[in-house]
């Protein structure tokens, strides 16, 4: 009896028998890791902010209204007729990201990224609900919310794959960009790719923890702290998306 309580309590204490931050060692290290990861993303977004402002501001779109029909070769028209996409002006995000799956030829500016944002925020909510259920040791609830989180993450990845496909389909590459400055496409692929990779690894880690929850690993351990730790990572991914969204689609 004494041994089991000892082993669970030891998880929360450090070598000196105390935890200076009142959190376990593993959780603090997750925080430190997230801080370093935040630096990486900050450097990418700061580079975006710098390059974006070192180009002329987007040309204001006065002709294409939301829900209006798009011509078949929309990008060419924007380059040749209306001249919204030129080399020394940053492209207006609402003219670049205006497609929606299964709805062809209609101008829906930023609708799809808003949906992606919604999906990611929602999966963050299910994650925090899983953590909350973990505090109450409610195994079935933890499993349910972990599963929903994994679904949300997978849905987000699917959306991003679709977004990339559309963007590449219109001729954007790492070093070529039909919408104007080529650094726009390069930054898009690198930053959303880096974020997408984080989402992907988050989903994989979530699946591992989900399997552990189902196997009852944390019932044996006496606490669901592992769920909290992956939760921290998952919220961080959501947090980064908030800033990717702000910088790429709004600035």
């Amino acid at each position: 009896m004494a041994t089991t309580t000892l082993s669970t309590e030891k998880k929360f204490t450090w070598g000196g028998g105390k935890s200076p931050f009142n959190v376990s060692y593993g959780k603090l290290m997750m925080w430190i890791f997230l801080l370093s990861d935040a630096f990486t993303f900050s450097s990418l977004l700061i580079a975006y902010g710098f390059i974006r402002t070192s180009f002329l501001a987007p040309i204001a779109n006065t002709t294409v209204k939301p829900f209006s029909h798009l011509s078949h070769n929309f990008v060419e028209d924007m380059v040749e007729k209306t001249k919204y996409f030129v080399q020394d002006h940053w492209p207006s995000p609402e003219l670049v990201f205006n497609h929606f799956p299964f709805i062809h030829g209609i101008h829906l500016p930023l609708f799809f990224v808003s949906l992606m944002t919604f999906i990611l925020i929602f999966s963050s909510v299910t994650m925090v609900l899983a953590v909350e259920a973990g505090h109450r040791m409610a195994k079935a609830e933890v499993a349910k919310y972990m599963f929903l989180t994994i679904l949300g993450g997978a849905a987000f990845l699917g959306c991003q794959a679709w977004e990339w496909t559309t963007f590449i389909g219109e001729g954007a590459r790492l070093f070529t960009n039909p919408y104007g400055p080529r650094s726009f496409a390069a930054l898009f692929f690198i930053v959303t790719g880096f974020h997408g990779f984080h989402v992907f690894s988050g989903v994989v880690i979530n699946i591992i923890i989900y399997i552990n929850v189902l196997k009852g690993t944390y019932v044996k351990r006496g606490h669901y702290e592992m769920v909290e730790k992956v939760g921290l990572y998952w919220h961080f991914v959501d947090l980064v998306w908030v800033f990717v969204f702000t910088f790429f689609y709004l600035l």
């Binding site: 801080l35 630096f39 700061i46 070192s54």
Partner: peptide, 28 residues
Amino acid sequence: TLKYTIILPMIFVIFFIALMIIEGNFTL
């Protein structure tokens, strides 16, 4: 202690963002 460990460095990052946007305008 934990709050400041994580949040203090990020405040400097926000400062950095502002600086580089100003710098970008100058480059333009």
